[in-house]
Design a protein around this nucleic acid. Sequence first.
DNA 1: GAACAATACCGACCGTCGGTTTGTTTCTTT
DNA 2: AAAGAAACAAACCGACGGTCGGTATTGTTC
Lengths: 194, 194
Amino acid sequence: MSRTKQQQREETMEALTTTARRLFAEHGYGKVGLETIAQAAGVSKGALYHHFSSKADLFRHVLGVVQHDVGEQIARAADAAPDSWAGLLAGCRAFLAAATDPETQQIMLLDGPAVVGWQDWRELDAESSARHLAEALTGLMAEGVLAKRPVEPLVRLLSGAMNEAAVWLAHSPDPQADLAATMDTLTPMIEALR
Amino acid sequence: MSRTKQQQREETMEALTTTARRLFAEHGYGKVGLETIAQAAGVSKGALYHHFSSKADLFRHVLGVVQHDVGEQIARAADAAPDSWAGLLAGCRAFLAAATDPETQQIMLLDGPAVVGWQDWRELDAESSARHLAEALTGLMAEGVLAKRPVEPLVRLLSGAMNEAAVWLAHSPDPQADLAATMDTLTPMIEALR
DNA sequence: GAACAATACCGACCGTCGGTTTGTTTCTTT
DNA sequence: AAAGAAACAAACCGACGGTCGGTATTGTTC
């Protein structure tokens, strides 16, 4: 039984994506060569370039996968909450937890903006994590829980605050305690917008 | 009349720093070669490596200069304010204005963390912009204007929020209006901490 | 002021790496 | 079965970061 072309394609891309994700996360974008990635994935550099148009293109694809995963974790946490308000806070906490993982962080927060550019990074972000934040906020405004105001600046501010906090938490000697402290500071700041 | 060694050193480093700052800002760290920088500065690549140990080292030096400049702009704005509270807000606005400049932004916010690492980036940040923020906040807490709480998480959150907001503002079609909207959202969030 | 040392600088060279080109194998299609 | 396309391999190219031997200029010592 021989593999079909589509199977073959999917398997190779999966192997490259997974391998690249691991290596980019571990060493950073600049310090990993394509030859290394290709070999670790069990294919040649030619094969890599058959599926991706450039190193940055491969990274963009990996970034999309990472963002997607984070987005799902946020959605799960938010859906499990009893109401919209608790959902927002749970989503924030879920994001901080996910983005604190060093490997996710290196790709999503450190190399991401620099490699693909802020514009593209923002678009990928808007398709995953930021979308949940924006939807939660607009929902709460419609319910009257939060005062109505432009959502865009608020999303940017909160998104940036949590991005930075996540990197800080990853370098913290006591992430558990600092995560709690961060939420204790973040919560009243959001509550101020009622 | 011949130049002294120190003069010569300072002139060359100044030329390299200024040139590198311009080119890094314009094209991004990854897309500028050292040969280009050296030639534009009127020296050879050998001279460059006589003063800096690597490309990243040159960038780190440039980053320090940029951070320093931004820090001074913040200090000026804060000192001109009538009281500590107004100083904090003026400092925030000054930071947003300074970091919205595309060239400052590319070096300080986009490439910075990725090139020198977050740890080093944070240290440089702490010596300039973040220091003013932390000092203003601790001062206001001592005065009793703000409720006492751990400063570190708060600084991280606010710092991150403004970093992200600055990048967003730089891509905005109407930066003036969006800057106002950002401050209108940021102010009540800080006021919530009284 | 002559000899020596230290510093600033040059430019050829090397290794690595992103990207291209060419060739081979394997599946699909008719 | 034959033609064609897709997946892959591998040799190759050019650019770039970094090194190194060497030169020129300034500083120091006797």
